[in-house]
Simulated scan of single mutants.
Amino acid sequence: MITFEFPLNERIRRLLRIEEIYQKFEHQLKNTHDYFEFGCFNTLFEIVQLVSRSDLKIDFLQELERQEKKQSTLIESQTLKEGQLNPKEIIPMIQVARKKLENIDVKPGFNFNNNLFLEEVKKRISSPGGLLDVDFPNFRNWATHKTRKSKLEDFKSWAKPLMVFKDAASIILLILRNQCHVESIKAKEGKHQQSIDPLKTFDLIRLELEKTLNIYPEISANKYTVNVFFNQLSEELKKEPVKLNLEFKYSICWL
């Protein structure tokens, strides 16, 4: 199965972006090919740009506090449903993430504690031509004489103060993906319209499809309905509507 997720507001879109960019960084650290460090530097600076917004820390702390209260209510009411996350396990995770966030200080313009080497790499990598040995012999010295293991240690050290945002986003998304109404649906001629309750606030739509179908969905939504259209790519990589009847799993989630 392959899962497609569609955020219904900017707050959830930002959470998904944070999750994906950290996943990309961790994947790049596992690469064994030459020049792997170029991708790692690019993604590291993308992470800084994404998480150094002044409002992000406040938003995360407020959401974690709200979720901790909700999970505590679930313990008191003892209304745990089958397959639902155990609040007694989630609450300690939330508390650890909150404490780490409260102790971190990542502001706009975060410069890795005045690390001049990283500042120079960041400046060079965004210039025309990117990071070139001819312009930056200091980088060539680092890339040539450092072992792969030593480079990985450097990247992990530089990223360490930023990992608290990954942890916070992961917990919030874990809770969100567990609070869903799920149903199996049959789409006719590659499209489907689903009614939603206008009195409720929803945050995320998830669609699960068989990989063998080799199609992808597009979604439009308002407070009353969700419209799903399935497409495929031609050999020229052009979008083509799918006219098949097909089954998929539909989930709508909320925090």
Rank of each mutant, 00 (worst) to 15 (best):
M1V: 12
F6K: 03
P7D: 06
L8Y: 04
L8F: 02
E10L: 10
R11M: 09
I12Y: 02
R14I: 01
L16V: 08
R17W: 08
E19W: 05
E20G: 13
Y22W: 05
Q23P: 00
Q23R: 13
K24A: 10
K24W: 08
F25D: 01
E26Y: 13
Q28P: 01
N31E: 15
N31V: 12
H33I: 11
D34P: 00
F36V: 06
G39P: 00
G39E: 12
F41S: 04
T43H: 03
T43D: 04
L44H: 06
F45M: 07
F45V: 06
V48I: 14
Q49K: 15
V51H: 04
V51P: 03
V51C: 04
Q62R: 15
E63N: 13
L64D: 04
Q67D: 10
E68I: 06
K69Q: 10
S72K: 12
T73R: 14
L74F: 11
L74E: 12
E76C: 06
L80I: 15
Q84E: 15
Q84N: 13
N86M: 09
N86R: 10
E89N: 14
I91D: 03
P92H: 07
P92W: 06
V96Y: 07
K99F: 13
E102P: 00
N103D: 08
D105S: 10
K107S: 11
N111H: 07
F112I: 03
N114P: 01
N114I: 00
L116C: 05
F117T: 03
L118R: 02
E119V: 03
E119D: 11
V121F: 01
V121Y: 01
R124E: 13
S127F: 08
L132G: 00
V134S: 13
P137E: 08
N141G: 01
A143I: 04
T144C: 04
K149W: 00
K149Y: 02
E153D: 14
E153P: 00
D154V: 02
D154Q: 08
D154H: 06
K156Q: 13
K156M: 11
A159I: 11
K160S: 15
L162C: 07
S170N: 13
I171V: 14
R177H: 07
Q179K: 14
H181S: 09
H181V: 12
H181D: 11
E183D: 11
E183H: 07
K186M: 14
K188M: 14
K191G: 09
K191Q: 15
H192W: 13
H192K: 15
Q193H: 12
Q193I: 15
D197L: 05
T201C: 00
L204H: 03
E208R: 14
L213C: 05
L213V: 08
N214A: 15
Y216R: 07
E218P: 01
A221H: 09
K223R: 13
Y224M: 08
V226Y: 02
N227G: 05
V228E: 02
F230E: 01
F230I: 02
Q232H: 14
S234K: 08
E235P: 00
E240M: 13
P241E: 01
K243L: 10
L244I: 12
L246Q: 08
E247N: 15
E247M: 12
E247P: 02
F248N: 01
Y250T: 04
Y250L: 05
C253T: 04
W254F: 12
L255M: 10
